[in-house]
Design a protein around this nucleic acid. Structure first.
Length: 817
RNA sequence: GCGAAAGUGGCGGAAUCGGUAGACGCGCCAGCCUUAGGAGCUGGUGGCCUUGUGGCCGUGGGGGUUCGAGUCCCCCCUUUCGCACCA
């Protein structure tokens, strides 16, 4: 009676053995060929592991196991991103304190992760909510503070009315809170900022050489949003002490600047508005400021642009003309200088505004081929924004006829010489607001002293332990729940010993994750955050796999923190990840998975029914790993059957000795090893599995019993996907110990990976008429002779003379008649 | 609006230095086996025409380059993602 594959039995047996043997523990100090295989650690939700997590981790685990089988010392750690609003909100909802809830969730996640057979070194697990971890998160804050990269300032910030805390710009999606989708409002509060803008250029520049998924790099580039242009200074009539500075990317259009616009918050608004206009301007500014940031930003699309004339007048430095200064809310204080020169002829927004308020429009750029026929009085239908070498300037004095692209440089250079302007760069990215008026995070290690002001907590006093606070519910006050703990709040100033209070905000959870991967190799060291020798040995990370949704959050923040720590002398590298690959998203039956749809795949159910190996492999088979796939319930049967056949091949028959039975099988074997090796290196798991299936079909074709030598490499190649099954069969093939304990990845012979005989397509006048077999490398003459001898070909030639042949070696011959 | 990616059988998806489109799998069809089977095995499966042989059509639509185009070029359509009053 044939023995059937019982995944449950096999998997629990091998999980037990791995644990007993310590198979996944890496010798951190002694490893000779270190390979740091990192994946984005999860937030341990109460629902347990999502299939999206399983998908991400499986792809990363396969990569790690593959590298290990190639003889590298692979370090594959895991941890839990258990701080943050997400956890806290859930705890509030459940009415359980996070200090109770989180350990339960972590225990559950750990159970699930172990069940799925990931190769984690559990001895180096990181839980960011443990004081021994966040002590160092606080330490990093202090290093940045000392280095002048952490700054407390009052600024307009995003406030989520539902989470009752501020959010970083990166956490606001389309004006809504990233976590709860509530419309974000604006508040003006004292907050801690990390000066990520100091690194904008480096963050951008290094994208040139780091090996990351292109799409992820593009997201970062867009977010950083560098624009090149000029700062230009305008004189204000009657205010010789003031210059109105603007940033523009189009200095070529300076001659067309017919008015200026200030943001409502601009400091000059009050100072330059004329007496007659004062009431109206104040009224407008008040209304604008009363609006939410979001409302104002949305306005651009939904309503007419509004504004008001200040009555003040500036001088266009190019034309010497007086131009009015307006205030309008379409100009944002947060970008550039909060003021613009308006060139209605060449900017859509300015054009719309000018039309609305009947302000003058002057064309200064036109297509080069219309230069001769240019009519300065013709009415412009829409803003003309092209500015390449094919457009030239008009109405621009000595710059008439200069191509626009060149004029950008020429006019800026001229301004520079005149002392009225300069080349300038602006970035879209803003400083990272890290304060959170919440409970569940590391307290920011700062003390506010009545005498000394802002005082950092001395490093020796770290960690500032997050106290147990019974009522941690956030409120509208803008002050975090930690302020309710008198014991926590009141402290002696470390400087003067006087009366002082602790900072009550906690830090953003993205700070926890900005350095967790640096901690992993040093988790056993409690005297320092990361041990220098180990850090140098294992970092930067060799391969990082994760979701692209973190492109401008975690991935950018961790790059910034790494650069900062590098510049502060703590790290020997400035980029944290050598290689980053995003994985795709998994959908179900063509639709997004969501709780509300009720179509979420629960991993446990599939593990129970088919086994972890089958679930893992099926997930990888759905589609290209970097693009995602569609989980179709019926599809898993294909992998299940495949593994049944693999099992049957090894477990239910004596395998004959000797080399692969035929040359053809031997070729197939080597070709398969080659393909699978290459596919795994490129994360092309779906096609690798297809190749393994094809190979098994070949060795079992017609019901034949394969030989030992035909099967063993297959088992090794299956191992990264289905580690438990592979171990069991590897053992049954007579091997000890674990298939992962040495460089057991099969080698291929490049010569053998190609067969000696090839199929060649024969075309007559470009149409396929036949295929013929020919020896590999056959010459054109040989192939031509074989083709002409073919009956089907002859029928199409029908005695006509072959005029010309096109020959592609080993592939095709095309006979032209 | 701007930027990017992608459109291939009933379905998931293969194949892009231009060279036999549809690998592998799901589903479906036929046969075998079985007391039974949501099991297993064998074979088939893009469409249309054809007794067979074979022929024609076919990778979102239209044009082009080429002996030859899913692949390269131009135009258009659709979908997805990112950004969006960023000056």
């Amino acid at each position: 009676m044939a023995e059937r594959y019982d995944p449950g039995a096999v998997e629990s047996k091998w999980q037990r053995r791995w644990e007993e043997a310590g198979l996944n523990r890496v010798d951190i100090d002694g490893a000779e060929r270190p390979f740091y295989n990192l994946m984005m650690y999860p937030y341990p939700s109460a629902e347990g592991l999502h299939v999206g997590n399983v998908y991400a981790f499986t792809g990363a685990d396969i990569h790690g196991r593959f590298k290990r089988m190639q003889g590298l010392d692979v370090f594959e750690p895991i941890g839990f991103d258990a701080f943050g609003i997400h956890s806290e909100n859930f705890a509030l909802e459940k009415g359980t304190h996070p200090m109770e809830l989180i350990p339960q969730n972590i225990a559950n996640f750990t159970r699930q992760l172990k069940q799925l057979g990931f190769m984690y070194d559990w001895g180096r697990m990181v839980d960011v909510t443990q004081p021994e971890y966040y002590k160092w998160t606080q330490w990093i804050f202090l290093q940045l503070f000392k280095g002048g990269l952490a700054e407390r300032r009052k600024a307009p910030v995003n406030w989520c009315p539902s989470c009752k805390t501020v959010l970083a710009n990166e956490q606001v999606i389309d004006g809504h809170c990233e976590r709860c989708s509530t419309l974000v409002t604006q508040r003006f509060l004292h907050q801690w900022f990390f000066k990520i803008t100091d690194y904008a250029q480096q963050l951008l520049d290094n994208l040139e050489w780091i090996d990351w998924s292109e799409s992820t790099k593009r997201l970062q580039r867009n977010w950083i949003g560098r624009s090149d242009g000029a700062d230009i200074e305008f004189e204000i009539v009657g205010h010789p002490d003031k210059k109105l500075r603007v940033f523009t990317t189009r200095p070529d259009t300076l001659f067309g600047a017919t008015f200026m616009v200030l943001a409502p918050e601009h400091p000059y608004v009050d100072e330059i508005t004329t007496r007659e206009r004062r009431a109206e301007v104040q009224d407008y500014v008040q209304r604008a400021l009363a609006m939410d940031l979001v409302e104002r930003k949305k306005a651009g699309e939904e309503r007419q642009k509004s504004g008001v004339d200040t009555g003040a007048v500036a001088i266009n430095p190019a034309t010497g003309e007086e131009i009015p200064i307006w205030v309008a809310d379409y100009v944002l204080m947060e970008y550039g200088w909060g003021a613009i020169m308006a060139v209605p002829a060449h900017d859509e927004r300015d054009f719309e505004f000018a039309k609305g308020y009947r302000l003058p429009i002057r064309v200064v750029v036109i297509p080069a081929d219309q230069y001769e026929s240019f009519d300065p009085d013709a009415e412009l239908e829409a803003a003309f924004t092209e500015h390449t070498e094919d457009e030239v300037l008009v109405n621009s004095g000595k710059f008439d006829g200069v191509p626009a692209a060149k004029a950008i440089k020429d006019i800026t250079a001229w301004l520079e010489k005149e002392g009225r302007g300069t080349f300038a760069v602006n970035y879209r990215v803003h400083d990272w607001c890290i304060s959170r008026q919440r409970y569940w995070g590391p307290p920011i290690p700062i003390i506010h002293c009545e005498n000394c002001g802002v005082v950092p907590v001395p490093e020796d006093d770290l960690p500032v332990v997050l106290p147990y606070v019974e009522n941690f519910k956030p409120d509208e006050s803008g002050v975090g729940p930690l302020a309710r703990s008198e014991e926590f709040l009141n402290v002696d100033c470390p400087n003067c010993g006087g009366v002082a209070k602790r900072e009550t905000d906690v830090s953003d959870t993205f700070l926890d994750s900005a350095w967790y991967f640096i901690r992993y190799p040093s988790t056993d060291r409690h005297d320092l955050p990361f041990e220098p020798v180990r850090t140098k040995k294992w970092l930067p990370v060799d391969m990082y796999i994760g979701g692209e949704e973190h492109a401008v959050l975690h991935l950018m923040y961790s790059r910034f923190i790494t650069m900062a720590l590098h510049d502060l002398g703590h790290l020997p590298f400035e980029e944290p990840y050598h290689k980053f690959r995003k994985h795709g998203l998994i959908i179900r039956e063509g639709a997004k998975m969501s709780k509300s749809r009720g179509n979420v795949v629960i991993p446990d159910e599939y593990v129970e029914r088919y086994g972890a190996d089958t679930l893992r492999s099926y997930l990888m088979f759905l589609g290209p790993y970097e693009e995602g796939g569609d989980f179709r319930d019926q599809g898993i049967a294909g992998i299940s059957r495949f593994f049944d056949r693999v099992w049957d091949t090894v477990a239910n028959s004596e395998l004959a000795d000797g080399p692969p039975e035929t040359d053809e099988l031997n070729h197939k074997l080597h070709a398969t090893i080659k393909k699978v090796t290459e596919d795994l290196a490129g994360l092309q798991y779906n096609t690798a599995i297809a190749a393994l299936m094809e190979y098994l079909n070949a060795v079992r074709a017609g019901g034949r019993r394969p030989r030992h030598s035909e099967v063993e490499p297959l088992i090794a190649m299956i191992a990264p996907f289905a580690p438990h099954l592979a171990e069991e069969l590897w053992e049954r093939l007579g091997n000890t110990p674990s298939v992962f304990s040495g460089a057991n990845w099969p080698q291929y012979d490049a010569q053998l990976a190609v067969s000696e005989e090839v199929d060649i397509a024969v075309q007559v006048n470009g149409r396929f008429r036949a295929t013929i077999k020919a020896p590999r490398g056959a010459s054109e003459e040989e192939v031509r002779a074989l083709a002409l001898a073919n009956e089907a070909v002859q029928r199409h030639l029908d005695g006509v003379e072959v005029r010309k042949t096109v020959f592609v070696s080993d592939r095709l011959i095309n006979l032209l008649v």
